[in-house]
Write a protein that binds this DNA or RNA. Structure first.
Lengths: 158, 158
DNA sequence: TTAAATGCAAATTATTTGCTCTTCA
DNA sequence: TGAAGAGCAAATAATTTGCATTTAA
């Protein structure tokens, strides 16, 4: 089931990513148990931006014994270690934005708070031409991810 | 329950936003029924980036008869009309990103597909200084939102 | 040998849907 | 009058948690 809008990632590149991810796990002290190794491999192998359930399905095909919770927990462990990131999402609930004017967002990775950022410099970012990918852009937005003040304090306390 | 990390939005500004939103609804043919008017007011009044449930709670305080589904449907109607946007989230499931290298995303607003974009120009965007907001940035990412090729076709068919 | 990871099932949370009743053009 | 919106309850989907068991440093 190839995804035509997702440029194909060659096998060599995926192998490279996998090796880099393994190395990062080692460095960060994330133990690569057998189930986690499968999760890592599946998530990278899928190539797109898989959901936890898609990863679970792929893993489950190879090793039916592996449960959903294990996959969810492994993915979160990878995110915590900086091996993966979450794309276009924080928190479990949709957040609505009532400001029509162009603006940007500070996204706290710990508490999912979103803070508005009005910044002329960012507004000036030129929209690259992605028509070659068949994509039509209606909106451009910069996300700065990190920790809000409150969460920085909480992290220090740990 | 004021949110200290969210700069306070003065009453005058909120009133302006509310009026602009009402005008946009009129122009887009979104009928502002009584429940929808309350949703609009609550979502803008909350000032932050509320979840559907937070909006529902606020509306419910004023008018206990209004159900959750009505709030969800109203918010989606506003998004469809371009009155609101979704901040930092598309789709209902978290999507994981296995690419550690700096890159950006095309986000399809219709099918929630995420497409990687490697673009030197965007990589060069300078991170603005937001230490004044107490925020520490670890990552900057540009999101281009719009419609992927497949969804453009589907929209035309409608 | 002990803290961390797993597997399963149950619980929670977020969102959607079916259906009937109401409302507004 | 006829299509769109509302309200409620039930269904579905995504994610988390509790707990007994296994595994890796």
């Amino acid at each position: 089931m190839a995804d035509p809008s997702q440029p194909h990632v060659p096998k060599r590149e995926r192998a490279r990513r996998l090796e880099a991810a393994r190395a990062l796990c080692r460095r960060k002290g994330v133990v690569l148990t057998a189930p986690r190794a499968l999760v890592l491999e599946a998530a990278i192998g899928l190539g797109t931006h898989p959901t936890a359930d898609e990863v679970h399905a792929a893993v489950h095909r190879k090793e039916p014994g592996i449960g959903r919770a294990t996959v969810y927990r492994a993915l979160e462990a990878f995110v915590a270690a900086g091996v993966f990131t979450k794309a276009s999402h924080t928190g479990v609930a949709v957040r609505y934005d009532a400001i029509p004017a162009r603006h940007h967002h500070l996204v706290c990775l710990r508490c999912d708070r979103i803070i508005d950022l009005f910044d002329g410099g960012l507004d000036g970012v030129a929209v690259p031409d992605v028509s070659g990918l068949g994509f039509s852009v209606t909106d451009i937005q910069v996300q700065l991810r990190g920790l809000c003040r409150a969460c920085q304090t909480k992290e220090e306390e740990k």
